[in-house]
Design a binder for these strands. Structure first.
Lengths: 343, 343
DNA sequence: GGCATTTTTGCAACCGGTTGCAAAAGCGTC
DNA sequence: GACGCTTTTGCAACCGGTTGCAAAAATGCC
C-alpha cells in the first residue's frame, strides 16, 4: 500500500542507502543523485516512515504529555502552549489523560512501549513520585507545575507557591483588612499546601490580623461555591485568597447570591489568571503564573535531558505577579488605608 | 539500553519467536514456555516495543487527534472525552494543534510519517476539504463536529446545526418576543452558516416577528461582547440566539454593563452547554450537544473504518436539546405569553 | 595523463519485532 | 513400542528504515 524507500530507489535507479541519505540531513549525497531521488520521491508521493527510522536511530521525537487536569480551563491554555511549542521544535505530543484512576504504572509502561523520547508531566496535583517513576525507568522527564524541592529527583519547572502565598497575603494586608483567610483546593495538593504555608508565614508578621484557612473539596466551581457558602454562614473574613481562579469564581457566585458586594463587602484574590479571569464579566484580581515561560522552559529542559540523560535534576521557578482587577478594592499607594477595627 | 526480545529469549532459553508468541494473544505457546518467558520478562522488566511490531503488523494504535480549537473551554471537555475514550480502547492520541496557520498539508504528512491508524478531526470551523485530504491520502478519518452533507466524502459525526437553529428560534418565539436576532460566530464557519439558516427558516413561519442577523468576529468572549455593544447602540432585539456559549457570555457582559437586566430586558439563548454555562454565576439558557455520544460514535466510526477501509462515508447526527436556565424568561407552558407589540 | 586525496556509493548487517513453514515434540490408540 | 494426528517450536525471511565499511568515482595537483 504505502510507498517505501525501495520503490523510490528502484525508480531513481539508486540504492536504498542513497534514498536514506537524501532524507538524512548532513549525509553525503551528490547533488545529482539527490535530485534524482527527490524527483522519484515526489512522483511517488514518498515520505519516510518515522517509526521505522526510530528503530535504528533510537529517537522517535514523541513526547509523552501526561496530565490529570482535564477540567480546569487553564489547562486548555496549557495544552495549547505545549502542543504548539513541541510542534515548533519538531516533536509530537502523545497525550495521556490520567484523570480516571488508571494505574499510573500503566501509563509508564505504555509510554515505554511507544519509546517516547521524553515525558512532560503537567500537573500541580500529582505527587513527585509519579514523575520520579519515569526517571527510574530511564525516561527523561520534567514535572511542570510541580513542587520545588531542595533535593529534587526530577526536573521541576513551575512557580514558587510559597512565595505566591506570601504575595497574596501582602495584597490582602495592603487593603487594610483585619480579618483574612486562605481558601485552598484539596489539602492533599502540594500546590495548596505550599500556598497555605506562604500565606501563613507572611501573616505571622501581622499578628493583629485574624487569619484562617479552609479547604475546598476540589479545584472546581462547585467546590468553591460550596465552601464559600459554608464560610458565609460561619461568618466570613473580609478578604480571601482563593487557591485557584475557578475556585474564586465559585466563591464569587456564593457571595453575590448572599446579596453581598465584591469587593465592598468581601474581597477576593484568585490564582492563575486564566483567560476567563480577565473577562469583564468576572474581572477577577488574581496572581498570574507566566505560562509561556514555564512551558518553554519545560520543553527546553526535556530536550536537554534527552541529549544529556545524566544531567542533574534541576528546578526552575518563575516569578508570579498580582494582576489588579475588580475583586479587591483599588490600592491607593499614597495612603494604604487601614479599616478601623470593629468596636 | 532497553531490554529487547533477544535478552528475554536468551534468559528463558527459548527462541525469539517464543517470546513474541507469548506476548501475542491467540498465538500458539505451551503453558510451560509461556511461564518461562513471563518469568524472564518480569525479571528483566521487558515490555515489547510497540513501534517495532507496528512495522510488520501495520498497526500502530496511534490515532491523530487534530483540532484548531484551543481557546474554547468546550474543547477541554472534548479532549477529555476523546483521550479517555481512545485510551479505554487501547488507542493513543497523537495530538495536533492546528491553531496557528501551519500548513494543513504539513500535518497530514506528519501523521503519515507516524503511520497513524486513523485520524479524528475535531473542529466545527475547519472546511470539509481538510478531512477529505486524509481520506485521499488513504488514512481512515472522521470529522467530528463537522458539517452534514448529502453526498459526504468523509465520515461526519455531529449535530444537525440547521435543526438547532430552528430549535433556538422556537425557544425565542415561545417567549413571545416580536424582535429576535441571531448573533453568530465568524460567517465563514459552516456551523454558523447552518445555524443561521435554520434560525431564519423557522422564523419564516412567523412573519410578524422581526428577525435580524449579525456575526461576531470570532467564537470568543471579546468578540461576543464587542458585537453586543455594537448592537446595543444600534437598538437591540428582545431575544438573541448566540452561536456559542462563550459568545453568549461576552454578550451578557455587554448587556449588564449597559445597565440592562437579563432576562428582563434582553433574553439570551446560547449554544453548547459547556460546563461553565451551568455555573450559577452564569446560568445560561443554552442548547446542549450530546458530547459523550458524539465522541463515542466518532471513535467507533474511526475504528470501524480502520477495519474496513472501504466503508462508505457515513453521517451520524445526534439530537440536541434546550437546557432551560436563567437567561430566558421562564416558560409558562399553560399560557405562552405574547408581549404586546409596541405602539 | 598519472597519482594521491577526497567524496560518493552500494553492500550487508542491524534495529526489534512478526510470521509462514517445516521439523520436533507431545499425545492417544492399538 | 509403533503409528497417526495435533500442538509446539525454531529457522529464516521480512517490515522500512540506518550506517560502518570498502570499493568506485570524482577531484586536485603536478
Amino acid at each position: 500500500m504505502a510507498v517505501t524507500m525501495k520503490d523510490v530507489a528502484l525508480r531513481a535507479g539508486v540504492s536504498r542507502s542513497a534514498v536514506s541519505r537524501t532524507f538524512t540531513k548532513g549525509a553525503s549525497v551528490s547533488a545529482k543523485t539527490r535530485a534524482k531521488v527527490e524527483k522519484a520521491a515526489a512522483e511517488l508521493g514518498y515520505s519516510p516512515n518515522a517509526l521505522a527510522s526510530s528503530l535504528t536511530t533510537g529517537r522517535t521525537k514523541l513526547i509523552g504529555l501526561v496530565s490529570n487536569n482535564f477540567h480546569n480551563p487553564l489547562f486548555l491554555e496549557i495544552f495549547d502552549l505545549f502542543t504548539r511549542g513541541l510542534q515548533d521544535r519538531g516533536l509530537r505530543p502523545l497525550l495521556v489523560n490520567l484523570s480516571d484512576e488508571t494505574d499510573p504504572a500503566n501509563s509508564i509502561r505504555m509510554l515505554r512501549q511507544y519509546s517516547v523520547d521524553g515525558v512532560i508531566v503537567a500537573s500541580s496535583t500529582l505527587p513527585p513520585s509519579f514523575a520520579e517513576a519515569f526517571r527510574s525507568a530511564g525516561i527523561p522527564v520534567v514535572h511542570s507545575f510541580g513542587r520545588y524541592s531542595t533535593s529534587p529527583h526530577v526536573h521541576v519547572v513551575g512557580i514558587d507557591n510559597v512565595a505566591c502565598g506570601r504575595m497574596a497575603a501582602e495584597a490582602l494586608v495592603a487593603r487594610g483588612y483585619h480579618r483574612v483567610a486562605f481558601m485552598g483546593g484539596p489539602e492533599s495538593a502540594t500546590s495548596t499546601q505550599d500556598r497555605a504555608r506562604g500565606f501563613l508565614e507572611a501573616m505571622r508578621e501581622h499578628p493583629d490580623i485574624d487569619v484562617s484557612i479552609s479547604y475546598a473539596a476540589a479545584y472546581s466551581f462547585d467546590a468553591g461555591r460550596a465552601e464559600m457558602q459554608r464560610l458565609l454562614k460561619a461568618g466570613p473574613a473580609q478578604g480571601y485568597f482563593c487557591g485557584d481562579d475557578v475556585l474564586s469564581i465559585g466563591a464569587l457566585s456564593a457571595i453575590r447570591d448572599a446579596g453581598l458586594n465584591v469587593p465592598r463587602d468581601i474581597g477576593i484574590i484568585g490564582f492563575n489568571d486564566m483567560e476567563m479571569a480577565g473577562w469583564e464579566y468576572i474581572n477577577l484580581t488574581t496572581i498570574r503564573q507566566p505560562l509561556p515561560e514555564i512551558i518553554d522552559a519545560s520543553i527546553e529542559l526535556v530536550i536537554a535531558t534527552i541529549e544529556h540523560p545524566d544531567r542533574h535534576p534541576e528546578t526552575r521557578l518563575f516569578p508570579c505577579r498580582v494582576i489588579e482587577r475588580g475583586t479587591l478594592p483599588p490600592l491607593d499607594r499614597a495612603n494604604t488605608p487601614r479599616l478601623a477595627k470593629p468596636a
